[in-house]
């Protein structure tokens, strides 16, 4: 474990906590894409299959359970909570997220480290996580005013993977140049997708104005 990866995990955890707080405190999920949240549940389920078979550390197991639990409860709130589900922008959150999941799965069948169920599903989760934010970014462009909590949520979500990129550079130089192409390239794509959001988020923060994405 290095400080970059710990910072990345904490940023990721903070983003999820901010989203849960927004939903629970305001009893609203306006501006949040259910499609992206469902993709994240799939990412965690397919990535943490070895949760009970491989023990790495108390931290690793705890965080996996927290990520699984929080992501599933967010989807539950948005789908089934009687008050929250009324606030879901159903008619704007129209991204066909299966068009994202299927190519990722096919790519995982083609390009992986070894051809086993666990490894192919893990690889699928890495590819899927890279594009899972797309429905959320599309929804942000459609929803005129983005509330601060939603903006902060997306910013922290993008920042966590950027910190992971730094962690991979650090591990490359400190762990006998071990190469991890699949997470590296996926992580690069994932972080790049946030580029224009980062630009407008930082601009709105600097000029102290409402965050607005161009349509």
């Amino acid at each position: 474990m290095n400080v970059f990866r710990l910072a990345g995990d904490m940023t990721h955890l903070l983003s999820i906590i901010i989203l849960l707080l927004k939903i629970r405190a305001t009893k609203s999920c306006t501006g949040i894409s259910l499609k992206t949240q469902e993709l994240y549940v799939i990412v965690f389920l397919t990535r943490y299959l070895d949760l009970f078979t491989k023990y790495i550390s108390f931290y690793n197991t705890t965080m996996k359970l927290v990520f699984l639990g929080t992501s599933i409860s967010i989807v539950w709130y948005m789908r089934y909570h009687k008050v929250v589900k009324q606030t879901y922008n159903k008619d704007q959150d129209t991204f066909r997220h299966y068009f994202l999941a299927i190519p990722c799965f096919l790519l995982a069948l083609l390009i992986h480290h070894e051809f086993t169920v666990i490894e192919v599903l893990w690889t699928f989760s890495i590819y899927l996580e890279a594009v899972a934010i797309l429905p959320q970014l599309v929804l942000l462009q459609r929803s005129r005013n983005i509330d601060n909590l939603t903006g902060n949520y997306v910013f922290l979500l993008g920042a966590y993977r950027a910190l992971y990129l730094v962690n991979w550079v650090y591990r490359y130089f400190t762990e006998n140049h071990l190469v991890r192409w699949i997470p590296w390239l996926s992580g690069l794509v994932q972080t790049t997708l946030y580029a224009d959001f980062f630009y407008y988020y930082i601009k709105s923060w600097k000029n102290n104005e409402k965050l607005q994405l161009p349509a």
């Binding site: 990721h12 550390s57 996996k64 990520f67 962690n167 991890r180 997470p183």
Partner: peptide, 10 residues
């Protein structure tokens, strides 16, 4: 490839 890559990340 033979290099074992540890899956110790989240």
């Amino acid at each position: 490839t033979d290099t074992y890559i540890p899956k110790d990340e989240l």
